Amino acid sequence: MKLNHLNLTVTDVPAAQKFLEIYFGMTFGGSLGNGFVAMLDDDGFVLTLMQGREVHYPKSFHIGFSQESRDQVDQINQRLKEDGYDVDPPRHAHGYTFYVNAPGGFMVEVNSE
């Protein structure tokens, strides 16, 4: 069984969309208007973003993007830092990983083995 899609409620759909496009290569898959867009990855997964006034995800809630190498994790981390995001350096936890707060009120994990 394959997970088809996931819906995130975010406070800023355009900013979240741009973030996912720039740093994680997701592409715009369509919009129904009224603050709703579908984002696609290169494996057919659909992440929908829906406008909400307030977002209160649990502290541990996040979405994750696996990378093929530690170098890719480092490159994304460095680019986020250069663009003004507050990110800690990657560390060895359950893989080589770091977290970043994305525009719109959700957290993203970036990791590799």
Rank of each mutant, 00 (worst) to 15 (best):
L3H: 04
L3N: 07
H5R: 12
N7A: 12
L8Q: 08
T9N: 08
V10P: 09
T11K: 06
T11I: 08
V13G: 09
P14I: 15
P14Y: 14
P14A: 15
P14M: 15
P14T: 15
A15S: 14
A15M: 08
A15V: 11
A15H: 06
Q17A: 10
L20N: 04
I22N: 11
Y23A: 04
G25P: 01
G25C: 05
M26N: 03
F28I: 02
G30C: 01
G30Q: 02
L32F: 12
G33T: 10
G35H: 12
F36D: 00
F36L: 04
F36C: 01
F36Q: 04
M39E: 00
M39Y: 00
M39N: 00
D42W: 05
D43E: 04
D43N: 04
F45I: 04
F45N: 06
M50E: 11
M50H: 04
Q51P: 03
Q51N: 08
R53G: 08
R53L: 02
E54T: 08
V55N: 00
V55L: 00
P58G: 03
P58I: 06
P58E: 03
K59A: 06
K59V: 03
K59S: 02
S60I: 08
S60Y: 09
F61P: 02
I63F: 00
G64W: 01
G64D: 04
F65V: 09
E68A: 14
E68G: 11
E68M: 10
R70D: 15
R70A: 13
D71T: 12
V73N: 10
D74S: 12
Q75N: 14
Q75T: 14
Q78F: 07
Q78V: 09
L80Y: 07
L80F: 06
K81P: 02
K81F: 03
D83R: 07
G84Q: 12
G84H: 08
Y85L: 05
D86W: 03
V87P: 08
V87E: 10
P89V: 12
P90W: 10
R91L: 08
H92D: 15
H92M: 15
H94L: 14
H94T: 13
G95R: 12
G95M: 13
G95P: 12
Y96T: 10
Y96W: 13
F98P: 09
V100P: 07
V100F: 11
V100A: 07
V100T: 05
P103M: 08
P103F: 07
G104F: 05
F106V: 10
M107G: 08
V108L: 11
E109N: 09
E109K: 03
N111C: 14
N111F: 15
S112F: 09
E113R: 10
